[in-house]
Every structure is written in structure tokens, then in C-alpha cells.
């Protein structure tokens, strides 16, 4: 399937990394992909977001203004982007960090305490990847199988020891009901 995805959160939560995982997955599955972060003063410690498009067709604008898939890893992101989601969109919320529910009723919301799950599993920096696993499960935007190859591409050889924890995080997210 094709997808227009917006990932948003604080700088340091691994938003750009999560975006990269989807982008590589789309590329390795032979689709057209684009990935563009919002840049500016926000880059420096504030909120952070990136647009990812995966499409069979050539991609026009890389900017996702009305996401089909929205990942919100903090409250300001949900506040800012919930209203922009396309009708029928799937919204993924890190419920450890976001106390409120999705307010719209024309979208599908998924709540996953990713930060808590990551912490419990001893991989506190991988809440982002847990959400990626959940998104794959609920949207089928890419296959779980491709993620092995993706991690090989995204994780540099000098950090190969990080591949296993990332796989674990993907599993946790994928299995979370």
C-alpha cells in the first residue's frame, strides 16, 4: 500500500530515525519514497517532525500536509497535527507521554505506551522503534521481513551491536495488542 506519513515528537526521541526506517523499507520494497524533515530553529532541541511518502507512483510534493498515518510522540505534536490528518487516517500515540485521547471521530487511534514498554524492556532509547513495529502491524505499510535489511542499511557497521535491540523493539511493537 501507499502511505503518506507524518512523524512528530521532541528532538532526541528518534523521530528522524523512525522516518528513515520506513523510507528505507519502501525503497527496498521497490517503491518510490521521499523523506523530508522540518528544519529550522526547531532542529535545536525543540520539536521535530518529518514527512515520509511511500508510493507506487512517482511522488510529487514530498511534504505531507494531510497524513494518512500520523505518529505523535509528544503532546505538542498531537495538538498540532491531529487536525491535519486525512479523514480515515491512523493516528499512533505514545500513551506514556500523552495523557489525552485523540479527539476526532473520523480517524482511527492507536495508543501504545511505547516509552514505558521501552523502559521496561531495558531499551529506553527505542520507544520510536516500538511504535514503528506497531505501525507496521496496523497499516501494512511495509513488511516485517524487510526490516532486517533496513536495519543493516540504517545501522552503521560500527554499531552493529544495536541491531539486536532494534529488532527486539520492532517485535514488542508488532506484538503489542
Amino acid at each position: 500500500m501507499a502511505g503518506r506519513m507524518l512523524l512528530a515528537g521532541f528532538g532526541g526521541q528518534g523521530i528522524l530515525f523512525a522516518g528513515k526506517l520506513f523510507t528505507y523499507a519502501g525503497m527496498l520494497e521497490g517503491k518510490n519514497v521521499t523523506n523530508i524533515p522540518e528544519y529550522g530553529p526547531e532542529m535545536r532541541g525543540g520539536t521535530c517532525n518529518c514527512s515520509v511518502i511511500i508510493d507506487e507512483e512517482p511522488i510529487g510534493s514530498p511534504l505531507v500536509l494531510e497524513p494518512d498515518i500520523l505518529i505523535a510522540m509528544n503532546l505538542p505534536s498531537l495538538d498540532r497535527f491531529e487536525k491535519t490528518a486525512a479523514p480515515g487516517a491512523k493516528i499512533f500515540v505514545d500513551s506514556t507521554l500523552i495523557g489525552r485521547k485523540v479527539l476526532r471521530d473520523d480517524v482511527e487511534a492507536f495508543y501504545i505506551p511505547a516509552t514505558g514498554l521501552a523502559s521496561d524492556a531495558g531499551i529506553p532509547k527505542l520507544a520510536n522503534v516500538i511504535i514503528v513495529g506497531k505501525v507496521i502491524r496496523e497499516t501494512g505499510i511495509c513488511s516485517m521481513e524487510i526490516m532486517d535489511k533496513v536495519l543493516e542499511k540504517v545501522v552503521p557497521p560500527t554499531r552493529a551491536h544495536l541491531i539486536a535491540p532494534n529488532k527486539k523493539a520492532l517485535e514488542i511493537g508488532y506484538e503489542f495488542a
Binding site: 528513515k20 525503497m27 519514497v33 521521499t34 523523506n35 523530508i36 524533515p37 528544519y39 514530498p62 511534504l63
Partner: peptide
């Protein structure tokens, strides 16, 4: 422009 500079594509 900034959009092309920042954008990732294969």
C-alpha cells in the same frame, strides 16, 4: 532550495 537540500530520496 531548502526543500530539495533537506529532502532524502533514493
Amino acid at each position: 532550495d531548502g526543500m530539495l537540500g533537506q529532502m532524502m530520496e533514493p
